[in-house]
């Protein structure tokens, strides 16, 4: 039995999720081109783990497995985990991270739509806290041959010097710790035009995917604009005050996970704020905390932690930013009937 409306727009959760996956493709392509096929192995592994965990959890919770698997939400989580992690991690790390995200981050809270934390970021944080060394090894830009990559993914011995391609954020942190100033660090080989060789392209590809999501009305402008705006603002102010210790806004916007975070991670509807003003506050908060962690914290990139911190605040933000309801925006005439 169902009642009006009898007309429904042709839309579904599955459609939304598949669109997100499609929008991730450009950036994935650029990363593969830069760092080799390691990322593809990682995506495949994460996807398989996510689907298996999802199916297991659903059947344990006695929910219809096929229907919920088909919604694609587990795949989005898996892909986000895969692109956040450095490529060529040993397989068991991917498995641990993904199953943590799906089992603990999602289903223990009640499954799709109920999780207060972004599951992908939860997985990232768990991994970076547990395995900080492995998590900071990004492969060199030149890449290595697929066989070696496979060898590493399967958990084989790693020739450490072959994986020394530190990310620009890492390099900046190490450089600054070594008392070099920003411009000096930027001169080094790892840096391209702005934010590290190749990294600008990755960031721009994320941005392009994000614009696609905006154009298809999967996300609204609030979160990306507030995120990037706040990031530019805080880093810009700091940079104007002391350019030798703080990197430029352009660097911050294009380095690390800024673009990915602004368009794909902070926009996760389930764990994010929902009201328009709430979204602005939520995203600006993430950007601010992420910059603070980058500038003063112990981890090179703080987006994941920032997202989780703001996830905690979401109920409060939502309650405080409820938009006025039709007819309740202004006082009624002569203070009258209310």
């Amino acid at each position: 039995m169902y009642n009006s409306p009898y007309l429904r727009q042709n839309t579904s959760v599955r459609r939304v999720m598949v669109t997100v996956l499609v929008a991730m493709l450009p950036a994935i392509a650029v990363q593969v081109w830069l760092f080799g096929i390691g990322l593809l192995l990682q995506i495949a592994l994460a996807s398989a783990t996510a689907l298996a965990c999802e199916a297991a959890m659903l059947s344990m919770r006695r929910r219809p497995v096929a229907r919920a698997l088909g919604d694609g939400s587990a795949l989005v989580t898996a892909w986000l985990i895969a692109v956040c992690l450095p490529p060529l991690l040993p397989w068991w790390m991917i498995v641990i991270g993904t199953s943590f995200a799906i089992i603990i981050g999602k289903h223990l809270y009640g499954g799709l739509g109920q999780n207060p934390f972004n599951p992908a970021m939860l997985a990232y944080c768990v991994l970076i806290i547990s395995f900080p060394a492995l998590m900071s090894q990004w492969p060199g830009l030149q890449g290595s041959d697929p066989a070696t990559q496979l060898h590493w993914v399967l958990g084989g011995e790693r020739a450490l010097d072959a994986v020394t391609g530190a990310t620009p954020l890492d390099a900046l942190r190490t450089g600054l710790l070594g008392n070099a100033d920003v411009s000096a660090v930027m001169q080094s080989a790892a840096f391209g035009h702005v934010a590290g060789a190749g990294w600008e392209w990755v960031a721009l590809a994320w941005g392009a995917g994000g614009l696609l999501l905006l154009a298809l009305r999967i996300i609204t402008w609030h979160i990306p604009v507030a995120f990037l705006g706040a990031m530019a603002l805080v880093s810009g102010v700091a940079w104007l005050i002391d350019p030798s210790h703080y990197a430029s806004p352009a660097f911050h916007l294009l380095a690390g996970g800024t673009m990915l975070g602004a368009f794909f991670i902070a926009t996760d509807p389930v764990s994010g704020a929902t009201t328009p003003r709430g979204k602005l506050i939520f995203a600006a908060g993430i950007a601010l905390i992420a910059w603070l962690i980058r500038a003063f914290g112990a981890y090179p990139d703080g987006i994941a932690f920032a997202v989780l911190l703001l996830n905690i605040c979401v109920p409060l933000i939502d309650i405080k930013t409820q938009p006025p309801v039709f007819g309740h925006k202004v006082e009624p005439p002569d203070g009258g009937a209310r």
Partner: peptide, 26 residues
Amino acid sequence: LFAPPEPELPCIRCGECARACPADLQ
């Protein structure tokens, strides 16, 4: 003419409904 709706899934808080609501509700 009016296909029976697909099975109900949990709300993903996507906010589509809030954007469509003419009464500015959530």
